[in-house]
């Protein structure tokens, strides 16, 4: 649990992410896609780290903020002529048909959308604790899903929004991710971040120190909503499409698994968890698709990847609930991940 700026804690994860991006992303078009989608998921995991990792309150609702971010960015970056002629967008509000923004203004819009939805819903949700909070955030995800699935005035409804512009340069998502990592780390060492972790460690002692649990949780929830909005938008632009199902249960499960497996309490844990789950997932996917790995073909039945990740999550929760990093930040000379 970090309380002041230690450069290695920040630079370690950043260097790992940058090294991963260049090592894998420059190999092939598929490698580029893997890197960009991993970074988009990682931004979402960072959003979860800000709130879930620092507060200790589980949230199943961050997919809702990602949805709002993805649709906000997607609808304003889809070219007007496509919006005019697309069957699934024929009921769109006219002002949305004519509204066109560039990629970066749309990402700002996504951040604002995530922050506003999180900020408003947080006013109610942050009054809850424990199981009630988890269930209420899950309900929020359900509400958001139904809004986008059933409302074709603001999007394609159950259909996909197509033709989103991709990132022009390889470095763009990498730089965005690094900026988010910096913001997340600075939040962690800020007064709000430190007092939030105090509420996680001892919710009885924290109020005696003048800490308003609801207030610090709300700040973190709103910030994490903003980051989730960005993560959702990045995911949309990497895929070139937005569909509400993409941000529902599998997305929620995958990103929470990444956080928990790595160790939710630290930036290092979020980083390691994302890359570990991605790496294992890619290997298992290649096996499912009977692709050779180092010249050897191993065939695994479809679905193995999801089962292994789910079992890994169970194993971690049973025997190492603070993740492979034990929730610690990166430190030079770390002998090993496991103690």
């Amino acid at each position: 649990m970090t309380t002041r700026l230690r450069l290695q804690e920040l630079l370690g994860p950043i260097l790992l992410v940058v090294a991963f991006s260049y090592a894998v992303g420059l190999q092939s078009a598929q490698g580029l896609l893997i890197v960009q989608s991993t970074l988009a998921l990682f931004v979402m995991v960072l959003a979860l780290h800000v709130f879930v990792g620092n507060s200790g309150v589980l949230s199943f609702g961050h997919g809702a903020f990602a949805m709002f971010g993805a649709f906000a960015s997607g609808i304003v970056t889809t070219p007007s002529n496509i919006k005019e002629h697309s069957l699934q967008l024929q009921h769109l509000y006219p002002f949305l048909v004519n509204l066109n923004l560039g990629m970066y203004p749309s990402l700002v819009l996504a951040i604002l959308a995530g922050a506003i939805v999180a900020g408003l819903s947080g006013l109610l949700l942050m009054r809850l604790n424990g199981l009630a909070a988890g269930i209420a955030t899950f309900a929020l995800l359900g509400v958001a899903y139904n809004i986008f699935f059933n409302n074709n005035r603001i999007g394609p409804g159950s259909q996909a929004l197509l033709a989103l512009p991709p990132f022009q340069f390889f470095e763009e998502p990498v730089v965005l991710t690094v900026i988010v990592m910096l913001a997340v780390y600075l939040f962690g060492i800020s007064r709000a971040g430190r007092t939030l972790r105090a509420t996680r460690e001892d919710p009885l002692a924290a109020p005696a120190l003048g800490i308003s649990i609801m207030r610090v949780r709300w700040i973190a929830f709103t910030l994490s909503g903003a980051i989730a909005g960005l993560g959702g938008a990045m995911f949309a632009h990497v895929a070139g499409t937005v569909q509400v199902q993409d941000y529902y249960l599998p997305y929620t499960f995958m990103t929470l698994s990444m956080l928990i497996i790595g160790g939710g309490a630290s930036l290092w844990g979020a980083t390691v968890g994302t890359l570990l789950v991605t790496g294992i997932g890619q290997i298992l996917l290649m096996m499912e698709q009977q692709k050779p790995i180092l010249g050897i073909v191993v065939h695994l039945p479809n679905g193995t990847r999801a089962i292994v990740i789910a079992l890994s999550l169970v194993v971690m929760l049973l025997w190492r609930s603070d993740g492979v990093t034990k929730g610690r930040e990166f430190k030079l000379g770390m002998p090993k991940l496991r103690k």
Binding site: T195, A198, D202, L204, A208, L209
Partner: peptide
Amino acid sequence: RTFQAGRLFPQLTVAENVALGALGLG
């Protein structure tokens, strides 16, 4: 107030624990 069981934040150093007494006030 203080508590019977201390209720310190075990992962933080002593100085960091004590600083939270002031940080909590803003």
